[in-house]
Amino acid sequence: MNVEQVIARVMPALAALTLVVVPVTVPTTGCAGPPALPPAGWFTNPTTTPPPAPVVVPPVVLPAIPLVVLPAVPLVVLPAPAPAPQAPAYPVRGRYPGEVLDLSNWYLTLPTGEERDPDDIYQPRLTTYLGSHFYPNSTGDGVVFRANAGGVTTSGSSYPRSELREMTGDRKAGWSNRSGTHTLCVRQAVTRLPQVRPHLVAAQIHDAHDDVMLVRLEGERLLVEYQDGDREVVIDPAYRLGTPYDLRIVAAGSRVQVYYNGRLRAEIPESGSGWYFKAGSYLQSNPDKGDDPDAVGEVVIYSLQVTHT
């Protein structure tokens, strides 16, 4: 077969084909991405097998889950906690007065007990004694001496007291200002007075029969009293309740000197023997003076020291 015969057979077959040419735009700027796919149907050929029909997946229906209802839980109401028991007013930080002051050479007389026979607290019991008339103050740096006007009194007085009496070991102290030097140093404050007769003794020198001298508060007048009340020296004319002060009583050379806040305020020309110091709250009032039996006199002692040389 010659060339003309071959062309004559091929041409009719080529004529049956339809060629579609799609123009492609080439970007002129930037970075060229992957060539775009030609649109669907760009090539048509009667002999091309059509695409398979899409597969339709039927929806999945999950079985119904029954609702589980939990049984009701009853509400349990817990009872309110019981309030903590109130501690007594007098103990502070678990301390005893004997941990605040050195009480080794003292005993305590209280406004309690039998008539004309008040309670006395001696060593060694006094070291750990605590009561409603003798207790640490709220800050734990002092001891409160508290006496009520209707309290029990000693046989030699008509006034109640919460007061320390000087000792020498297990013996009652007794000395003379005709020899040696005998000194009481006390820092204290009077914090309460009875209303009708606001008188109170906070410190004193006593002998076997009576007081030798007293440091006494009458309202606002803080004074030194001696010669059975016939003589007095005012050491603070406007004392305010609750104000701490430093008191130093020096008995020597047949006289007694009283220093108030470091200044010599009184000099008493008295001498004797069988003397001893006392300190605390010694009321000078009682119901016979018009005060209520529950009227109170209080003294706080912050430091207490006695020396004999």
Rank of each mutant, 00 (worst) to 15 (best):
R231M: 14
Y129D: 02
R263G: 05
L223A: 14
N286F: 01
H133P: 00
E220L: 11
L217T: 14
Q188W: 13
V61Y: 09
P35C: 12
A64R: 07
A279Q: 06
F145C: 03
E218C: 03
R165G: 04
G131P: 07
P79I: 08
L62M: 05
R248I: 04
P46T: 14
P58K: 07
P63D: 10
D228P: 00
I205G: 05
F145H: 02
G98F: 02
A13H: 10
E99S: 15
R192L: 06
A53L: 07
Y90I: 07
D246K: 08
V144L: 02
E220V: 14
A189M: 02
V224S: 09
Y129N: 08
P34T: 15
T139N: 08
I121H: 04
Y260I: 04
L101R: 03
V201H: 00
G113H: 01
A72K: 09
G169S: 09
R197H: 12
W275M: 15
V57T: 08
T112G: 01
V24M: 09
G290W: 09
G174A: 15
V55Y: 01
V196T: 15
I235C: 04
D236M: 03
P52S: 11
G169F: 09
L37C: 07
L17E: 11
E225K: 12
S281Q: 07
V196I: 15
A238W: 08
V152D: 03
A173H: 04
A40R: 10
